[in-house]
Each structure stands twice: as structure tokens, then as C-alpha cells.
Amino acid sequence: MSSQKKLVVAHAPYWHDGSKISTKNYHIMIAALPAVLMGISQYGAPALAVIAFAMACAMIWEVIWNLILGKSASIGDGSAAVTGMLLGMLMPATAPWWLIALGTFIAIIVGKQIFGGIGFNPLNPPLLALAMLVISFTGIFDFNESLRHYDLGFVMTYPLADLKAFGPDAIGKFGMGDLFMGRQAGAIGSTFGLGLIVGGLYLILRGYMRWEISLSFLAGVFITALLFNLSDSAKYAGPLFHLFTGYTLVAAFFLLPEDSSSPANFIPMLIFGAMAGMMTVLIRNIGAYVDGVVFAVLLMNLCNPLLDKIRPKAIGKVVENA
């Protein structure tokens, strides 16, 4: 019963909504643009160089890995580019080239590919790389130190470092509006609050991101910071300060909702975000590190498999009373 023309046989369904990983990733990059452009406009060519080099490096590592393993090229899906871009956004504009090469290597190869590639990374690759770099090269990630040659017309000290070193009294010089509009020292793509929020909202509305995680994270940061602030406002900064400084917003919209290292069920997403927010403020306020986002997110990534076991009962599922 074979006919001359060969038809394609596949399993149902034969329709698809047309979404693709690459589209998704390109949208993430588009959403990140406002913050990145602001960073570039502030820090100039070095910032552009960092972002571009990070993206290029990330993609090169991905290609090299695919070649070594003889796998089909996965560079077209854009995930390496996104990883590179996000890592670039988290770096100071003065980051040296080798740091970026090393960071992208960790993010792409160690953080993702050795686990089987996209979808299998247990932790957020850019943050994993960043964590390793931060504990190794404290000098470079001391923004006060690395950005001291810049004078952009606003206070050029890193707000969180000031908070850590001198307490809330020292942060009066930062206006909330300035912080929100990116008039603060920090990593290339993490200072422009408005841009990040716009980008995040874009992703949420287009359905490329899980709003539950972002919002619960922001709520977690806000509430925890507020509680600390209320308990002793002389020691702990206010919630808005925590929202608009450091990596908070970039984490909320671009890092935390990274697909494979975050939960996908509703309640776990809320817990995940809220706990990450809480941990962030805890580390900032009583921990050893200046910005808690990096480790807070990684810690919650670890909990992801356990959290994701909390899920609604499937319809029809029989619960045995054993």
C-alpha cells in the first residue's frame, strides 16, 4: 500500500501556535535594550564593548562546545546570546576582556552545557558565573573602585556599598528619582530602573515571562526591607532603596524568571520569588556580601526542584489513603 509520493507522518497535534525558543530569546533581548542602551549612553564605548564582547564570547563558547560534542548547532536559538548579554549587563563597564571570556565560559559551558544544554541548567548561568567572579575578583566588582574614573554628574559611589559600610545615614544623598532613572553607579545594565521595568512589563504582557516570579520577588524585597526598616531605621535602609539599587530589578525581570532554574507551577513561583526577595534583603542587611541578589537567586535555584513538587492536584488523580 505504498504510494509514489511520500507524505509526512507525525503524531498529533498538527497545529502549533508558532512560538519558538529563538523568538522568545530575541524578545528578551529587545526587552533588555532600554536598560542596556542607558548603560551604554552613560558609560560609553567600554560598556558597549563589554556587552558586545560578552555576547560574542558566549556564542563562541556555545559553538565550540557543539563542535566538540558533534551536536547540531544550537546557536540559532539565541539562548547563548541572551546569557552573554545578561552577564554583560551585570558587569561594570570597566570589566577587562579576560574576565568576560572567563565569565561567559563558566556561564555557557560549566553552568549550562555540561548539564545537557538549554533546559537542563540547575542554576541561572549568568548568575552562577557572576557569583564565581564576584568571590574571586572582589576588586573588579567593587563598583566604587572600578568606576572611580567616571564622573557622570551624579554621586559616583555604589549605593549598596555605601549602605554596607556606612549605614543608612550615608545613603541620603541618593534621590529615589535618580536611582529610578538610572542616575546611580553600578553595573552596565542594572541601574536604569524605568528601562528595566518597561522591558519587564513588555515581556510579561507578551507572555514570554512568568509574572508571578517577578512580582513576588519584588514584593519579597519590599516587605522584608520594610520590616527591617521598621524594626530599626537607623540600621536598615528603606524598601524603595532596596528595590531601585543593585541587581534587584534586573534580577526580577531577567534573571529570576530564567526558565529552567525556576519553578513553573503557580504556588512554587510565588514562594520562589518571595523567598529570593527575602534572602536578598537578608544578605544585604546582615550577610557578608554587598548585594544579596546573586546568592539569593542561586539559593532559590537550588530549592527549585523541591519547590516545584508543590503543585495542584491533577484532575482525575486518585489520592490513595495509604
Binding site: 509526512v8 498538527y14 502549533h16 538549554i118 533546559g119 526558565d259 529552567s260 516545584d308 491533577a314 484532575i315
Partner: peptide, 29 residues
Amino acid sequence: QDEADSAQTTDYPCINCGECIRICPVKIP
């Protein structure tokens, strides 16, 4: 169905985006 209109499958792994969970009428993970 014309080839251009039909759904093409891949052997990409699950990236855990959660779309399937949202749409599943019986709430399967």
C-alpha cells in the same frame, strides 16, 4: 496540510517555560 502550515517537531529539550502547565485542562505538570 501543506508542509509550510504544519507543525514541525524538534528534539530540543524542555526548557521549563511552563506554557504547557498553564494550558493543561487537567493540571498535569
